[in-house]
């Protein structure tokens, strides 16, 4: 069973790297959906002998929120402000991947020395969670659109969720629920903000600023 969990961890980091290297917003969201699906399967593999009701609940909650509701809101948002393509990222794709690789290496190096309470389910859980958080941050740093910021934030949240899963026995369900609620509220707020940005720019008669629409602040 650990094999599956390890594979899931690797996949999650891999997807985060792909999001970092993708320039189209729709593509980013789709890959995020994939990542969330993988993540939502993780609790099912935690207790090999008997899948508890709690695991199933968690899995279902994650899928419905991260792979359905959040992408739906995001797609709705970009449709509202009719923005499909990402502007050029601050750092080129190649450089982003190199930085991402360095970050992953760094995360592994750091987690070697990190001491966590309780016995982790797998050795890969912690470094992968850390790497995902760092990559999410990298996405936020290198992209200029509001939607991409949200995606970066969601990737960070996925990393934190992965961290929670890898420490499953030490982490109460309440905290996981809290994380899920956080994500939902954050995306909700972002959608409202995006909507407001859109309305603000619609009043602009010159239309010159339309090009910048959706760009953060």
């Amino acid at each position: 069973m650990t094999t599956w969990i390890d594979a899931g961890c690797i996949l999650i980091v891999f997807f985060a790297l792909i999001i970092l290297a993708t320039s189209r917003i729709v593509g980013m969201i789709r890959i995020f959906v994939l990542q969330s699906c993988v993540l939502s399967l993780m609790p099912l593999f935690l207790h090999a002998e008997a899948v508890s009701a709690r695991d199933v609940m968690l899995s279902l909650g994650t899928v419905s929120l991260k792979a359905a509701l959040v992408p739906f809101v995001l797609f709705w948002a970009i449709r509202r402000i009719s923005m499909r393509t990402e502007v050029k990222p601050l750092i080129g794709v190649g450089a982003s991947i190199v930085c991402g690789a360095l970050l992953i290496a760094g995360a592994f190096w750091v987690s070697l020395a990190l001491r966590i309470p309780g016995r982790p389910v797998t050795d890969l859980g912690l470094p992968c969670a850390l790497a995902t958080v760092l990559l999410g941050f990298m996405i936020m740093v290198t992209r200029t659109r509001a939607v991409t910021q949200v995606i970066g934030y969601l990737v960070i949240e996925n990393g934190i969720f992965l961290f929670a899963v890898s420490l499953f026995d030490a982490m109460p369900t309440l905290i996981e629920m809290g994380i899920l609620l956080d994500i939902f509220v954050a995306v909700f707020i972002m959608a409202i903000v995006l909507n407001n940005i859109n309305e603000e720019f619609e009043h602009d008669p010159g239309g010159e600023s339309r090009a910048k629409m959706g760009e953060t602040f």
Binding site: L90, F137, M138, V141, T216
Partner: peptide
């Protein structure tokens, strides 16, 4: 003028703290 720059400072500081 980008928010991203500030994010990067936070990011670098976080990594510094971690290390």
């Amino acid at each position: 003028l980008y928010t991203q720059m500030y994010l990067m400072y936070i990011f670098l500081f976080l990594i510094f703290l971690l290390v």
